[in-house]
């Protein structure tokens, strides 16, 4: 479904990604862990071309999205993205946040778009918050709106960039529940998270990234219980506390 081949990215002298390879099968849920600054967010942003890689190729299905003929807008309709800081449009209600992409990108007519947006919000348990503005919602609710907004575009895969890191502990489970449900429905997902519970329940594979490279990958049990690499061991013991 998604293939990343030898991707490099630098910002000035800072070599953020140093030849990353990754392959995610259709319907697979992959979790990515690693210290901050290891390049996880940049890798995610390369997959929907928010960041263009300097070298290497990325494929979505059979399409080489790093080819210059590919429109970034097209790529972004194939892969949805959820951000650490929600990034809802603060001047629009929950419903209109979801509607924007449907009417402007998918060019749906307004009646159909409204039905679809309402359904997506009901799916994340926010059917009663359609007309609330982001500032009137809790962090957990905002993140669920953001998930609904991304899902409404019918993406083939979803990218999550530390979706629960900015949340108060009491709201984390409601977001993880929605993500687990999505995983069970067969969505292809790449999730940057340090939520071990989610990784163990939902993910089939965990990759550990450090200093711009994928150091190790394996099942959740392998990575969390019997990490092979010293850097993985050190990091896992830190997040296990």
């Amino acid at each position: 479904m998604i293939q990343v081949r030898q991707v490099h990215k630098s910002y000035g002298d800072l070599h953020v990604l140093k030849g990353v390879n990754l392959e995610i099968a259709k319907g697979q849920v992959m979790c990515m862990i690693g210290p901050s600054g290891s390049g996880k967010s940049t890798l995610l942003r390369c997959i929907n071309l928010l960041v263009h890689p300097d070298q290497g190729d990325i494929y979505i299905g059979d399409v080489r999205i790093t080819s210059p003929e590919i429109r970034p807008e097209w790529v972004r309709q194939q892969v949805g993205m959820v951000f650490q800081s929600f990034n809802l449009f603060t001047h629009l209600t929950a419903l209109k946040n979801v509607l924007l992409g449907l009417t402007r990108v998918k060019k749906m007519d307004s009646e159909e778009a409204r039905r679809k947006a309402t359904w997506e919000l009901q799916r994340v348990g926010l059917g009663d918050k359609l007309d609330s503005y982001p500032a009137q919602l809790s962090g957990g609710q905002q993140q669920r709106v953001a998930i609904a907004r991304a899902l409404a575009m019918d993406p083939k895969a979803m990218l999550f960039d530390e979706p629960t890191s900015a949340l108060d502990p009491e709201y984390i489970h409601e977001v993880l529940d929605v993500m687990t449900q999505l995983a069970n429905e067969g969505m292809t997902m790449l999730v940057v998270t340090h939520e071990m519970g989610f990784a163990k329940n939902a993910a089939s594979e965990v990759v550990f990234m450090d200093q711009g490279q994928i150091v190790e990958h394996g099942t959740p049990a392998e990575i969390f219980e019997r990490p092979g690499h010293d850097r993985t061991k050190a990091f896992v013991s830190k997040i296990l506390g």
Binding site: N48, L50, P72, E73, W74, R76, Q77, G80, M81, F83, S85, N87, L88, F89, T90, H91, L100, G101, R104, V105, A146, R149, A150, M153
Partner: peptide, 29 residues
């Protein structure tokens, strides 16, 4: 916030759409 521009682009909105639908209405307010 730049995050909102990023979110708009991640949805597939063009630069122009992002400007008129996301940035300017909030800047105006």
């Amino acid at each position: 916030p730049t995050g909102q521009v990023e979110a708009a682009e991640a949805l597939g909105l063009t630069r122009v759409q992002t400007m008129f639908r996301v940035t300017l209405p909030q800047a105006f307010r």
